[in-house]
Design a binder for these strands. Structure first.
Length: 417
DNA sequence: CTCGGCATCCTAT
DNA sequence: CTAACGATAGGATGCCGAG
């Protein structure tokens, strides 16, 4: 069965979506000047999340610190991120795709795979269909996309990355040699910075060289699994299906880069409480309990460390997550070296309907008096948040970590933000 | 020896 | 000079102790 896969990718998604909103408000189009979306402008630690094409001409790249970008281009306009807007824009964009495609996989907020296999009678000309889709999105929603077409997801995705913006590209098997193999290895999906560095030591610079390399050599450079996947990808081989169903989550995590370095236990515990509140509220909202908790810290030199543990029993209680994370931090942070980042992750999730291994619901945390009290408090806070928004409820630490950290250490109020 | 837990590394948006 | 100034997620890998 020959497949036909599209990959649709919004060009400079966050910036495009912000530009559309500004244009609707009668303002000028920031896509036409050097501009970018850059993290939290109040924190000095933001990075470039999306940039305009004029900004790119200054050598500004996604992921670089805002300060550095401003050095390259002092007149760069930096706009704050607004994830509510992005979620709404993403929905509108994907709902147009669903009008054409029987199976849509939401790969990220601004990317989707469409399985168009077997639609030849309905759409005899796939290229024409791709143009129709991208033009409709552009004309109705005001932003451009790239469409990549191939026989599998990998080729569709690589093709959508070719030339931007507002383009349709194909990467069919007979085009692998001319379109894929000349590209630098780092352009290949899942060949990141570290793999590029290792491949370079063996003189492998292009995707074509990777696709012709000795599998034994690749295994020694990249490891067993990664090397096999890289070799297949380099030759345009990929069997993975387009999945319409979202994956079942494996964990929830929240982490913050702190406005000020944390050196004392009281500061650290305030941050943990806030993070624990976030993570546990997400567990309750999504109907999961965590069997494991992990705490991560990052020092001033960017070195990261983490400690994790398994719980006696699964939990979604903010108190249990908090107390556990305090214990993990104390194991991790004996030296009290200054921290620039802290995070908590809930791991080894159990779904609502998924009973715990063993038979220990006898004197579990929900059954003790203290456990019931904590459960009640969490429920009450959750319902207040649902009614009045996440900013409404504060309890030493609030829903949003950044707010709380700012309040504690800078004495700023919400209105100043 | 194998398995599972843990810490870390790697990659993606 | 290097990496690297972010949040979140998932998978791979190497080590270690238990059975």
């Amino acid at each position: 069965m020959e497949r036909l896969i599209f990959h649709v990718d919004v060009n400079s998604a966050f910036l495009s979506w912000e530009a559309v909103r500004l244009v609707k408000n009668g303002e000028s189009d920031v896509r036409l000047i050097p501009s970018c979306i850059g993290g939290d402008p109040n924190s000095r630690r933001g990075i470039v999340l999306a940039k305009s094409i004029p900004a790119k001409k200054y050598g500004i790249v996604t992921g670089e610190p805002i300060g550095l970008a401003l050095q390259k281009c002092p007149e760069l306009m930096v706009l704050p991120a607004d994830f509510k807007l992005y979620a709404a824009s993403s929905r509108a964009f994907k709902s147009i795709l669903r009008e054409y495609a029987p199976v849509v996989e939401e790969f990220s907020i601004d990317e989707a795979f469409l399985d168009m296999s077997g639609t030849a009678l309905l759409y005899p000309d796939p290229l024409a269909l791709a143009h129709t889709m991208k033009n409709r999105i552009r004309d109705e929603l005001g932003f451009t996309v790239n469409v990549g077409i191939g026989r599998n997801k990998l080729c569709a995705k690589m093709a959508s990355d070719f030339e931007k913006p507002d383009k349709v590209h194909t990467l069919f098997p007979e085009e692998i040699e001319s379109k894929l193999w000349p590209l630098p290895v780092g352009d290949l999906l899942f060949v990141g910075r570290s793999s590029v560095r290792r491949l370079e030591t063996a003189g492998i610079r292009t995707i074509g060289e990777l696709g012709h390399a000795d599998p034994k050599l690749l295994a020694s450079l990249l490891g067993e699994k990664m090397s096999r996947q890289a070799y297949r990808y380099a030759n345009g081989i990929d069997d993975s299906p387009v999945r319409a169903e979202p994956e079942i989550p494996k964990g929830f995590s929240n982490e913050v880069t702190l406005e000020e370095d944390v050196v004392r236990d009281e500061q650290a515990h305030a941050v943990l409480l806030s993070l624990a509140d976030c993570v546990s509220a997400r567990l309750r909202d999504e109907g999961y309990k965590a069997q494991g908790i992990s705490v991560t810290v990052r020092y001033l030199n960017f070195q990261k460390r983490s400690h994790q543990c398994m719980l006696e029993r699964a939990t979604h209680s903010s108190r249990t997550v908090y107390e556990t994370s305090k214990k993990l931090l104390s194991e991790l942070w004996g030296d009290h070296r200054p921290l620039r980042l802290m995070g908590i992750a809930a791991t080894n999730l159990l779904g609502k309907d998924e009973p715990e291994e063993g038979q220990l619901s006898l004197f579990g945390e929900e059954d003790s008096a203290a456990g019931r009290k904590n459960e009640k408090l969490d429920q009450a806070l959750d319902s207040l948040r649902r009614r009045f928004g996440s900013g409404a409820v504060k309890r030493g630490a609030s829903m949003t970590v950044r707010e709380e950290v700012a309040r504690k250490y800078k004495g700023k109020s919400d209105s100043e933000r």
